[in-house]
Design a protein around this nucleic acid. Structure first.
Ligand SMILES: [Mn+2]
Ligand SMILES: [Mn+2]
Ligand SMILES: [Mn+2]
Ligand SMILES: [Mn+2]
Lengths: 140, 140
DNA sequence: CCAGAAACTTAGCCCGGGCTAACTATTGGC
DNA sequence: GCCAATAGTTAGCCCGGGCTAAGTTTCTGG
């Protein structure tokens, strides 16, 4: 029972940074029209050098395109991943708020949790948001 | 709003392996009386070399004690962390099941999610397990 | 009792994702 | 139009957490 479990967690982590980056890049483009490295530096609270390395990996993996001193753009694949990640993130975050957790905490916790939420769990959360809590003997 | 958020996720990850290891070590001791490296190898689906490295880090950090070819033992600190981690894990896993997620999926997803669940969120989950869903009345 | 199996160790490698420091390019305010 | 501030790049470092391969120790059952 345990082995597969931990393998899944490790593989979730392998795609985590990519998911958060494309999401942030898409948001920056939506809000400011363009995404510059400096936007990611402040969003993730890492250094310029780190952003550079990471963006290079994303480019290697076909998620973004960028040229020296130019804004960062998303490939079609990158856009798809961004849209998907944003949706999942929003559901997890809203779900936590629905649970009664403060918006602040929901924002923080969902940032990590989102990457470990399977389709099945995501659907369960979506169901709650759309149809309320699972029936479980109401009272009061 | 974003910066702190991602810093928290990164710090969660920094303690994740330690938490999972002490939990697994405590379980092995509870079940087999003793924890050998080979137990961790199969539990985490990693190689013996990896377990060795990791256990050395845990020892460096004061969570376990071990001598060559001897079983792995938990320090007082390690035992405390194990107990705490096991409790948190159980709550997250049970919560997912309560949500209607299959036991299989709950086991997998909770393994990653647990490390990102704050006190506040954990309390919200515990409340559901003990007192049912937040009253929100409306439905159907 | 002892040989082979199982468990463990060690060395050396890899990649991701952080960092600092030093440099270069772009840009915009004067 | 220039120059300082801002943005971006590059080199070189670190650690965590994986791996393989090769050797060593311990245990066990025949
Ligand atoms: Mn996200
Ligand atoms: Mn995230
Ligand atoms: Mn875990
Ligand atoms: Mn995680």
């Amino acid at each position: 029972m345990p082995p597969k479990t931990h393998q899944r967690t490790r593989s979730d982590h392998a795609s985590e940074v990519a998911e958060d980056y494309v999401e942030a890049i898409a948001d920056a483009i939506a809000q400011r029209g363009v995404c510059r490295a400096v936007d990611l530096v402040s969003h993730f609270a890492v250094t310029h050098a780190t952003v550079n390395n990471t963006v290079a990996r994303l480019q290697r993996d076909g998620l973004v395109t960028t040229l020296p001193y130019q804004p960062i753009e998303l490939t079609a694949t990158g856009k798809r991943l961004a849209a998907q990640s944003r949706k999942r993130h929003a559901i997890v975050q809203s779900f936590l708020e629905r649970l009664g957790v403060s918006a602040q905490t929901a924002a923080i916790d969902s940032e990590g949790m989102e990457h470990h939420v399977s389709k099945e769990t995501l659907n369960a959360m979506k169901r709650v948001l759309e149809q309320g809590w699972p029936s479980d003997g109401e009272s009061t």
